[in-house]
Design a binder for these strands. Structure first.
Length: 577
RNA sequence: GGCCCUGUGGCGCAAUGGAUAGCGCGCUAGACUUCGGAUCUAGCGGUUGUGGGUUCGAGUCCCACCAGGGUCGCCA
């Protein structure tokens, strides 16, 4: 519909430029649905863009354009110059009614497109190292990445969801040492560090207390789950691990157990990955050495202070970075670079990293270095998101990662449910701080809780169907509904809103901004709920059979679009509430 | 201090460079009397942090400044 109109405008504009003796290209004009319905179904800004070039007033050009339109197509019913030089057009025929037919016909695939043309996109997200439970930041990232991936799939991209984690370095060793320390404390052969010093990052603690050594590492993981892990090992092995044959058992067990817990959490919130990849494999496959060698070959590596440096300043960045530490151990930067090369070796057309703001600084180094190794820089994208804070009773809930006194994804989901969790996490623009208001999230009142507002709007379509069945009124066949009796302004507004859905899905995917979808769902629900609620003017089930049938068609259309929107968000679309 | 994100009605937020800046909560005033009802309608509320600039047109782009958050490690 819009495509045909667009062509009509292009053709008319070509004629207009011809008359003006201008051989130049058409301007990149916009043809979009204006905010206000008074401004027609579509508005075109071409006249304003041409004003300077043709040295004529924009309204004058717009008049000419309006005059030319009828010779170049038949989609325009009425056209009018407005404002500074917009051409507002009203479409011919029963355009919104046609649209509902399309919604009903396409059903679950309405809103989907094939513009991705099967391009392979890798979306890397969460990627939390297995050192503890998922935090709310991970939760936000998980939902964000998952919905972006789903949106891309809905637009014809071939998507791989991937989780990458570092399990080679110091952090994992620290994790193992933390578990070992707690284990020894449980055996009574080590003393825990003084409680009051744990929260203080500057504090030193004595090497022994009451004759027992303090082995808990200075930067160790302090969460209660570490002690649980130690207890588990003690239950299984008794005191046999005080001097274990396999010194890696603490680290290995911790990684396995924590990673299993993370996967369970992800499963609970409806996130599944196609591929898990990790740092260790990059080592064993020789990718780390290879990447370092290739960087060296490009003259981007030098030695200083017994460490190996990346000459990032040669790549336009503000400082150099260490690739291999004095200890001989690579920093995380080197494997990250190797990993991004690996992505392109695996033939992805686009790779998309979803990361929290705390990691943002890292990305430019990885991208520039990978680009120097012949990876296409513009095909490495970053979606950065800000943090999540939790509010309860108007007060921010204090969270401390260091002391592990933070609310986990598991806890929050147990508290508010998966659907509310996902909806709230994806409602805000990624770059905005997200304030998760527990009071709103836990409110069961659909008027107060936006997640329920959308779900309830969907459930109501079934409520009406149930009512119809009760009254002996049959639901119409999806393929043969005459919706022309729908003429009330609120009905046209609903039809228009339904028509916007494909564009929203498309834009949200291409801009990697899934919050548009959540907003759209709220908008549609915000039109639908009052329509249903205010039965005085337009009860769906009335005496007029044709009108009833048409309104039942609208019910089905709204249901379809709400269900599709909720589906893309990974949220259930209930029939009852 | 450098870099990044944010700043929009009382609160929480939205707005491919387009027309009169939208939505929810809250607030105010009316209406309905249980139907598919955990009601509806209307209204009040804004110099989009400040000051310049680009543009036919700026919440949006550029510059400076102010405020909040993040980040600047041979941590991940």
């Amino acid at each position: 519909m819009r495509e045909q109109l667009f062509e009509q405008f292009e053709s008319a504009l070509r004629a207009l430029l011809g008359e003006a003796g201008d051989p130049g290209a058409l301007p990149e004009f916009a043809l979009e649905a204006p905010r206000s319905p008074d401004h027609g179904d579509f508005a075109c800004n071409a006249a304003m863009l041409l004003a300077k070039r043709l040295r004529r007033p924009p309204r004058d050009i717009a008049e000419q354009l309006v005059a030319l339109l009828p010779e170049h197509g038949d989609r325009v019913h009425r056209a009018q110059v407005a404002g500074p030089g917009f051409v507002n057009v009203w479409l011919a025929g029963e355009r919104w009614h046609e649209l509902l037919g399309r919604v009903l016909e396409e059903g679950g695939s309405f809103g989907h497109s094939s513009i991705g043309e099967g391009q392979r996109v890798q979306v890397e997200f969460v990627s939390a190292n297995p050192t503890g439970p998922l935090t709310l930041g991970h939760g936000r990232q998980g939902v964000l990445g998952d919905v972006i991936a789903t949106l891309l799939e809905a637009n014809g991209f071939d998507v791989t969801r991937e989780y990458y984690f570092n399990n080679g370095g110091r952090q994992m060793r620290l994790l193992g040492d933390s578990v070992r320390a707690r284990y020894l404390e449980l055996l009574g052969s080590a003393a825990p560090p003084p409680e009051e010093l744990l929260g203080d990052s500057e504090a030193q603690w004595p090497e022994e207390i009451d004759g027992l050594p303090v082995v808990f590492p200075r930067d160790g993981y302090q969460g209660a789950y570490i002690t649980d892990l130690a207890q588990g090992l003690r239950d299984e092995y008794g005191d046999a691990l005080a001097d274990p044959e396999d010194p890696d058992i603490f680290k290995r067990t911790a990684e396995e157990v924590i990673f299993a817990a993370i996967r369970k959490t992800l499963d609970t919130v409806g996130i599944t990955f196609d591929v898990y990849s990790n740092e260790s494999d990059l080592y064993s496959e020789g990718r780390i050495e290879e990447t370092l060698g290739d960087l060296r070959g490009k003259g981007l590596v030098y030695d200083k202070d017994e460490a190996v440096w990346l000459k990032a300043t040669d790549l336009g960045l503000d400082r150099d970075r260490v690739l291999v530490k004095r200890t001989g151990e690579p920093t995380y930067l080197l494997p990250d670079i190797a990993y991004h090369r690996e992505k392109f070796r695996r033939k992805f057309d686009v790779v998309l990293d979803v990361q929290g703001a705390d990691h943002f600084e890292q990305f430019p180094f990885v991208r520039k270095a990978a680009a120097a190794l012949d990876c296409p820089e513009e095909r490495m994208e970053l979606v950065m998101h800000q943090f999540v804070t939790l509010t309860r009773g108007g007060e921010q809930v204090k969270q401390s990662t260091r002391r592990a006194t933070y609310v986990t994804v598991d806890e929050l989901v147990a508290d508010v449910g998966v659907d509310v969790f996902r909806f709230f996490m994806v409602r805000r623009r990624a770059e905005s701080h997200l304030d998760f208001d527990l009071d709103v999230a836990k409110d069961k009142d659909w008027k107060k809780n936006p997640a329920y507002r959308v779900q309830y709007a969907h459930a109501r379509t079934f409520g009406i169907e149930r009512k119809a069945t009760e009254k002996g009124v049959a639901m119409p066949e999806r393929t043969s509904i005459d919706v022309s009796p729908l003429t009330l302004p609120e009905e046209i507004e609903l039809l228009k809103k339904l028509s916007e859905f494909p564009e929203i899905v498309n834009q949200a995917a291409l801009t990697r901004e899934p919050h548009h979808l959540a907003y759209y769902a709220e908008d549609l629900a915000g039109l639908w709920n009052p329509y249903v609620q205010d039965g005085s003017n337009h009860r769906v089930l009335g005496d007029d059979e044709a009108l009833t049938n048409a309104r039942l068609g609208l019910v089905l259309g709204v249901r379809t679009v709400l269900a599709n929107a909720l589906g893309l968000l990974g949220i259930s679309a209930p029939e009852h509430m």
